[in-house]
Amino acid sequence: MMTITRPQVEAELLKFVGADAYIHSEATSFVFVRNFKIKLTHAYIAGEGPFRAALRFDGHGWLRMEALTHYEVDGNSRLLLAGYDDRGRMNVALHLGKEPFAE
């Protein structure tokens, strides 16, 4: 995982816009969703670090997350965004893939 730079992540997010995507999203220990399938219409990233990201989908959907610090495009062309604290604990994650994530 690399620290987020906004232009790079923005470019990676755009690769998913206009098509179906599978989403993994979680916030600390309180909630996770895995393999939500959406038709992504817009994707945004904002802030100076930590960063905020938002997805618009299916004509009426919002997903917004904050506290994102790191990203990676993995070997399966999936975009993985995550927010870590200063001791390596993950607070949030937002993953986008063209195929379902492992159950």
Binding site: M1, H24, E26, S29, E72, Y84, G88, R89, M90
Partner: peptide
Amino acid sequence: EMGRRMGNPPYLNRET
């Protein structure tokens, strides 16, 4: 695989 501790400094993500 849903653990919060990803190494310190972190070297893992949810998928790895």
